[in-house]
């Protein structure tokens, strides 16, 4: 178990790197060198506009979620896995079809910088 260190807002990329209504991936590396892959989605028409979730699809067992199509199901913003099409909520990480959850991260845009809290 990792100790809970103080999380910081760290810059990942610029807003120009985002792809509208679609996803990109990023690699988070913490102080101890551990890596996590995240998927960042930019949906300017949604309330939150930007979301970050884990990139690993626990059902397809591959790091592919950033390549999924985004949209909404009953007004919940979701990404659909490109492998087997299950939907994951971008707000909670909950899979809508099966009992699986992916991680969600706090993300914001500050001065055209995309920042994630980790």
């Amino acid at each position: 178990m990792t100790t809970i260190t103080d999380k910081l807002w760290r810059t990942i990329c610029g807003t120009a790197d985002l792809v509208t209504d679609s996803g990109i991936s990023a690699l988070l590396t913490n102080e101890t060198g551990e890596e996590e892959q995240i998927a960042i989605f930019y949906l300017p028409n949604s309330e939150e506009q930007i979301f970050a979730v884990g990139n690993y699809d626990p059902i397809g067992k591959a790091n592919v979620l950033y390549r999924g199509l985004v949209g909404c199901i009953d007004s919940e913003p979701v990404v659909s896995s490109p492998l087997y099409k299950q939907h994951y909520s971008l707000k909670t990480g909950q899979c809508l079809q099966e009992d699986e959850t992916i991680a969600v991260y706090d993300i914001r845009i500050e001065n055209e910088q995309v920042q994630v809290l980790y």
């Binding site: 792809v19 509208t20 209504d21 679609s22 397809g60 591959a62 790091n63 592919v64 390549r67 999924g68 199509l69 985004v70 490109p82 492998l83």
Partner: peptide
Amino acid sequence: SLQDTNDTYLGNMQKDG
């Protein structure tokens, strides 16, 4: 942003991505 991953990446995604 409309395309399935296969069309976006112009290839068929395999089981390991």
